[in-house]
Simulated assay, not measured.
Amino acid sequence: MKPVSRFAKPAALDEIMSRGWRALEEEALDGWVARYSGGMTKRANSVLPLLAPEDTRLAIEAIEERYSSRGLPAIFQISPDAKPVDLDLLLAELGYVKDSPTVVQYLALSEPGPGTSSESDPRIHHADEPSQQWLETLWSVEGPHDLAGQTLSRSILARTPSSYVSLVVAGRIEAVARLARVGTIGGIYAVATREESRSRGHGRAIVQAVLIEAAARGLDGVWLQVVESNAVARKLYESLGFETISRYHYRVEPLSGS
């Protein structure tokens, strides 16, 4: 892992990132934060273990009961700063399945990355609210595809002040991204390019536009989260100057009888 930038520390980012994709409901439980959003994304339906509880096993049981009452499996987000330090091992012993290893990357905007430019791209459009076409572009790539899921998705997006960036060609949005603003830094979410419009540089252009937007708003830096196995996206972000500063994965409660 590369050295941590002095502009951001993983210990501070777990909670900050949670505010970039805020759950519809949050509950504090003995040092942990349980997040519920009807099952829409693991980020918004998992436990953020910020502090060690007095009794870890009892805390896990309480978590399982609360998620079960909502028809959801218990899911824990595990980073190097999860508490207690042996939580990942304990969950593994209980049969919790490891899922979605993810890297956290950061770019300090006082240190412009390669390939960024302040030149205006006429294809780029900015808004403080997502248009219906912006949402439909995101959902067409990443889902959800059902009305109930889309309603939840829209509600989660609205929970954090954000900028919605679109790349428009011939009147149609071809790529989108969201800049969530949390204090003095921002998080890049919902980067999506229509499948039929890929390999045209749209992904790079939309991320560059988000970085320009973040700088224009006076943010100190930007974080993003990318699935560890997504080599193409990681290569793009690293070419723009992002560095990996942390990692996390999920531990998902096993199905009954499995």
Rank of each mutant, 00 (worst) to 15 (best):
S118W: 11
R198T: 09
E228C: 01
Y36D: 14
K2I: 05
R200K: 09
G171V: 13
A44G: 04
P254Y: 14
S166T: 14
V191A: 03
A192R: 04
N45L: 09
A52M: 05
A28Q: 10
F242D: 01
R172N: 12
A215V: 08
L72Q: 15
G201I: 08
A34V: 13
V165Y: 02
V165H: 04
W139Y: 11
T193S: 11
A92M: 09
A215D: 10
S140A: 12
D88G: 12
V97C: 07
A177Y: 08
V210W: 03
T244D: 07
Y189T: 02
S258I: 09
L138M: 09
H202R: 12
N45G: 06
D86I: 00
Q208I: 12
L29C: 06
L48Q: 11
A170H: 14
Y96T: 12
E61R: 12
T193L: 00
F7I: 01
L89M: 08
P114M: 04
Y237K: 00
S110L: 08
A52Y: 00
E213N: 14
I78E: 08
E238G: 05
G115F: 07
Y248P: 03
S5Y: 05
L224M: 10
W21T: 03
V33I: 14
D220I: 09
G143K: 04
A62W: 04
R66F: 07
I173E: 14
M1H: 06
E136A: 12
Y96R: 15
V176N: 07
D14S: 09
I185S: 06
V33K: 05
G221S: 04
H145Y: 02
V232G: 05
D121M: 12
E253Q: 15
W139E: 15
I75M: 13
A215M: 11
R22M: 02
G203D: 00
I185F: 02
P161Y: 03
D14L: 07
D14V: 04
L138N: 02
G218D: 13
R43I: 11
G201W: 05
E25V: 01
G38R: 00
G38E: 02
R194E: 14
Q105N: 04
N45W: 10
P80W: 06
S110M: 13
G183F: 03
L219E: 11
G183I: 11
V227R: 11
K83E: 15
R234F: 07
A214C: 13
G241M: 01
A231Y: 12
E174N: 09
V182I: 13
P122N: 15
P130Q: 04
I206V: 15
A59E: 01
N230W: 03
D146F: 04
I188P: 00
Q208A: 14
W139C: 15
S246G: 07
E228H: 11
W32A: 04
S166H: 08
L179W: 02
L236S: 02
G39V: 06
A180N: 02
S229W: 13
E136D: 15
V207W: 07
I156H: 01
G221N: 01
L58H: 08
L89Q: 13
R194F: 05
A216S: 15
I124V: 15
I16T: 13
L255E: 15
V232F: 01
P101V: 10
S117V: 13
D128H: 14
G257A: 13
E195M: 08
W21Y: 11
E65Q: 11
Y96D: 08
A28C: 02
H125G: 08
